[in-house]
Design a protein around this nucleic acid. Structure first.
Length: 558
RNA sequence: GCCUCUGUAGUUCAAUGGACAGAACACUGGACUUCUAAGCCAGUUAUGUAGGUUCGAUUCCUACCAGAGGCACCA
């Protein structure tokens, strides 16, 4: 509520001093003693105006002081020429009131109004383990989708299941050669058996390359609708889906659409036709590829020499369908591992060449690898960590402290550990780090929230009507300095598709609350109790909303 | 070989080109016999190397070093 006024006042001052079209940047200084907002315009325009920056800053301040900006108490110059703005007590009282009134309304940003966005995430493969690797996509994608939705975007959460491809040829060969379909069905965890078969396939294929050809043949059969191939495939899909549903339920993640790759099987023909018509396809060594102008990117294969389709073929069909289904102007976000970033650059460029999308309508969020200490974990090698084991271990560790909340705390710690860092960073898997329950962790936030709720529960009801209580004297504390910034943080996290901005903000916020809580007696503050309760309630509100964006449950007690 | 990403404290991570580079873990010490100690307070330690652009660089550019990933029939 104050930023626009401040910016306008600075711009006016600059015009007054001779700048034609002033550009004003306003930031929050790192150090609270430098005020709530600061601008570096004096440093930027000193050269142009041929004056000393410090003097320019002083001139600007003198002009601004005459303006009397609402909610700004003090303006002063500092350092080499920064101008610092200190907000007034009324501002903080107002902002607390606003938080309490708006509740679930996350602030006033509505940058996504009228815009559609598809967030494709999680996307596990059928008949393969749901590993710690897929967890990242699931967690980050969920947080991004939620963040965009509160910014007003109309969000379609899509799980693009890997239920098609040569891998099913391999799977079928393995089942027919070494498996027993009835035994697998009786197993409590059929997917594990399938994965064992898959690993065996790769082990045996090393000495017997003919198996690979056999697998390709079976996939072609599957594509042509062979009854036996279809039957085995359907069975694999059913077993996997059952397992996935259990995991999604535990993680609290849901989807609007679950169109697997097989859904687009019959939609690839049209894409091939369009590629041919636009003369984008070129034959090379029997396969069909797209070559990019000036070789700015390596060629992208669309059709194999045996006529089989590839991931790219299906993805193009997928995006063509989405365009038709959701209309022009839809933005598509793919959350996948970072190792696919070259592939997505190829796809994005091709889709631009086809005239389907503008470059900013296609986004790839590539997360870093979760790897073991010894290197990459791979299904083929059989050294993956199953997500279920990780969830169980997380809950077990949380149980050691408190049985009642173990499930939400365990899963909260796991999610937060992922979201607190930039998505593109690799994670070296380490139990103690991944399931950290102390310090910068999910449980720290949950605990801070539960503590605030406990204070509110124990407070006298007549003092709880915080919204209309007024702030009293005394210094503004860190918590107040942070609370009003939540909407800005959410907006930035949405714009940059980067949930870690929310995560790091919440850590800071919780730290401010805990520090304040330990020092002050909230319920025994005399006349000021009402305002302190309002502040506590506002903190709880923001923390709850923030945790929700990250997909982490905020427990009332723990 | 080429391309992309990463290099910050003993460790794991932050930091829209700005003020003294922030946290957490670990370590050391402290407070609390009243609202939740998974907490609070205090302390030690860091921008891979060499240049460049800039009033000002962890951030931008160049080269090098180190790690990860990718580069035609996997996804």
């Amino acid at each position: 509520m104050a930023t626009e006024h401040i910016k306008r006042a600075i711009a006016d001052a600059l015009r007054q001093l001779g700048v034609q079209n002033p550009e004003v940047s306003l930031e929050h200084p790192d150090d609270l003693s430098h005020g709530d907002y600061a601008t570096n315009v004096a440093l930027r325009y000193a050269k142009e105006l041929k004056v000393n920056p410090k003097k320019l800053a002083d001139d600007i301040v003198r002009y601004i002081e005459l303006q009397k900006i609402s909610f700004v108490e003090k303006v002063e110059t500092a350092g080499v020429g920064f101008i610092n703005f200190y907000l007034s007590q009324e501002f903080f009282a107002e902002s607390i009131k606003e938080v309490l009134q708006k509740k679930d309304d996350f602030g006033r940003n509505n940058i996504g109004k009228g815009k559609k966005v598809i967030v494709e995430f999680s996307s596990p493969n059928i008949a393969k383990p749901f590993t710690i690797g897929h967890l990242r996509s699931t967690i980050i994608g969920d947080a991004v989708a939620k963040t965009l939705s509160v910014l007003g975007f109309s969000v379609i959460r899509d799980n693009h299941l890997g239920d098609w491809g040569t891998q099913f040829g391999k799977m079928i060969v393995a089942i027919k050669k070494w498996g027993d379909i009835h035994k697998i069905a009786e197993n409590a965890a059929p997917v594990r058996e399938l994965v064992d078969l898959y690993i065996r396939f790769h082990a045996e294929a090393k000495t017997n390359p003919a198996l690979e050809d056999e697998a390709r043949e079976w996939f072609v059969k599957l594509e042509k609708g062979d009854a036996e191939a279809r039957g085995l495939w359907k069975q694999c899909v059913a077993w996997s889906m059952k397992e996935f549903e259990g995991l999604y339920k535990r993680l609290g993640v849901s989807f609007d659409t679950m169109h697997g790759e097989s859904f687009f099987e019959d939609k690839m023909q049209a894409v091939m036709k369009e590629l041919e018509q636009k003369k984008l396809l070129k034959e090379s060594e029997g396969a069909q590829l797209v070559f990019f102008p000036n070789e700015i990117l390596p060629p992208l294969m669309i059709l194999k020499k045996d006529g089989g389709t590839l991931y790219a073929t299906r993805d193009l069909a997928t995006d063509a369908w989405r365009k038709k289904e959701y209309g022009n102007g839809v933005t598509i976000i793919n959350e996948t591992g970072g190792e696919q970033s070259l592939y997505f650059r190829q796809i994005f460029m091709l889709e631009e060449m086809l005239g389907w999308f503008k470059s900013n309508e296609r986004v790839h969020i590539g997360h870093g690898l979760t790897r073991g200490k010894e290197g990459k974990m791979s299904t083929r090698e059989g050294n993956t960590i199953w997500l279920e084991e990780v969830l169980d271990e997380a809950v077990k560790r949380a149980e050691a402290i408190n049985k009642d909340t173990a499930e939400i705390v365990g899963i909260g710690s796991l999610k937060f550990n992922d979201l607190k860092r930039e998505a593109k960073q690799d994670i070296v898997f380490d139990w103690n780090d991944v399931l950290n329950m102390k310090g910068d962790s999910g449980p720290y936030l949950q605990y801070s929230y539960a503590r605030a709720m406990s204070v509110l529960r124990k407070s006298p009801p007549q003092l709880r009507r915080g919204a209309e209580s007024t702030r009293r004297g005394g210094g503004v504390n860190e918590l107040e300095h942070l609370l009003y910034r939540f909407p800005e943080i959410v907006e930035r996290a949405g714009r940059e598709y980067a949930p870690h901005f929310i995560a790091t903000y919440l850590i800071e916020l919780a730290g401010a609350f805990n520090g304040w809580y330990a020092k002050e007696r909230i319920l025994d503050a005399g006349e000021e109790t009402k305002y302190r309760l309002a502040l506590t309630a506002a903190f709880a509100q923001v923390m709850k909303n923030g945790l929700w964006l990250l997909g982490i449950t905020a427990p009332e007690k723990m």
